[in-house]
Structure formats: structure tokens, C-alpha cells
């Protein structure tokens, strides 16, 4: 079945949108409330294996222990270590905004001090030469009046020297 080059047929061009109202659930809800009201990043700890999750988890993924006990939550960060990163030099369409990504855009996978599980967030530094793995970074949190209780209450992570 060899294909011949043919004249293009008719396209149907539509942009389809669906509204969603996602729940954050008990644990993330509490995480975002703390972030909004007190500007503190919390991790929750598994009572069985002791791992500290940031982002928090409802249940430990290894031993299925409930980690919802609020008294076991510990503040982590805002300083942390960059585990790895990527750096977008071409723009992409974002599903979160429906708009094109503003480049350059660097995203780091960050292990906050005190946590055992990684967090993914934007880096302030966009000069590729200056981003080094295992460099120290710190979360920049919005002023209280601007915080809305979502992940963007953390503006980005800035590079720090210690």
C-alpha cells in the first residue's frame, strides 16, 4: 500500500475545554493551609519507617501506614538541595494555563532539608552554566497577603551559598 502524495482533505479544528474541580484531600489540603496561613512547608512522617514526605502522602507507599496524624508533621526546608533539573529552551503548551511556557524555564527536583521525598518546583536561576547538581537552594515564599493556598505560594527556589 504505497502512499501517493495527495491533496490535503478537510480538517476539523476545535479546541475543547472541560471544567474540573479537583479535590486536594485531607493531607494536601492541610499542607496548603499551612503554606497559606503560616508560610511553612510541612512534611508528614510515616510512623512505621520514619520517612518524611514532602509533598505529603496520605499513606506510606512502602508499608501502607496512615500518615494523617497531624502531630507527626514536621516543618521542612525552606532550604534544600538540588537533586537534578531540566531547563526548557523551547516553549511548550502548558495544560495548567492553556498558554505557551515563558522560556527560559528551569525546574528542579529538590530535596528539602529534613524530608526524604523529593519536591519538583521552578528554579529562579535560568543560566544553565550556573545550575549545578547538589547546589543549595531555598524556597522563596510569597508575602502573606498574596498567598492563595496553592503550589504557587512558593514563587520559586533561589540559589544560595552557605
Amino acid at each position: 500500500m504505497k502512499e501517493k502524495v495527495q491533496e490535503e482533505l478537510i480538517y476539523i479544528n476545535k479546541t475543547m475545554k472541560i471544567p474540573y474541580k479537583w479535590r486536594t484531600g485531607e493531607v494536601w489540603g492541610e499542607f496548603f493551609r499551612e503554606l497559606k496561613e503560616n508560610g511553612i512547608i510541612y512534611a508528614n512522617q510515616c510512623p512505621t519507617c520514619g520517612r518524611a514526605f514532602c509533598l505529603p502522602k496520605d499513606v506510606c507507599t512502602r508499608d501502607h501506614t496512615r500518615c494523617t496524624d497531624r502531630s507527626k508533621w514536621i516543618p521542612v526546608g525552606p532550604k534544600g538541595t538540588l537533586v537534578t533539573y531540566f531547563m526548557a529552551e523551547q516553549s511548550f503548551l502548558l495544560p495548567t494555563t492553556g498558554e505557551m511556557l515563558k522560556i527560559p524555564f528551569a525546574v528542579g527536583i529538590i530535596l528539602l532539608d529534613g524530608a526524604t521525598v523529593i519536591l519538583q518546583h521552578q528554579l529562579e536561576e535560568t543560566d544553565e552554566e550556573k545550575i549545578k547538581i547538589f547546589m543549595r537552594v531555598e524556597a522563596v515564599i510569597k508575602p502573606k497577603a498574596e498567598r492563595k493556598g496553592n503550589i504557587f505560594d512558593i514563587v520559586h527556589f533561589k540559589t544560595i551559598t552557605e
Partner: peptide, 26 residues
């Protein structure tokens, strides 16, 4: 990008390539 949770990390994945670039760097 929508494989990630809308509440937390969806904005920071940028498609499969974002994830793959991070493991490449590592």
C-alpha cells in the same frame, strides 16, 4: 503533563521531555 497531580506538580513537568531531561542530567 497531565499525568501529574493538578494540585501540586502539573505546572512543573512540561511533558515527557521535562521528566526525561531530569533523569538525563542525573
Amino acid at each position: 503533563s497531565t499525568i501529574t497531580d493538578p494540585a501540586v506538580d502539573r505546572h512543573f513537568l512540561v511533558g515527557a521531555i521535562g521528566g526525561l531531561a531530569t533523569v538525563s542530567v542525573a
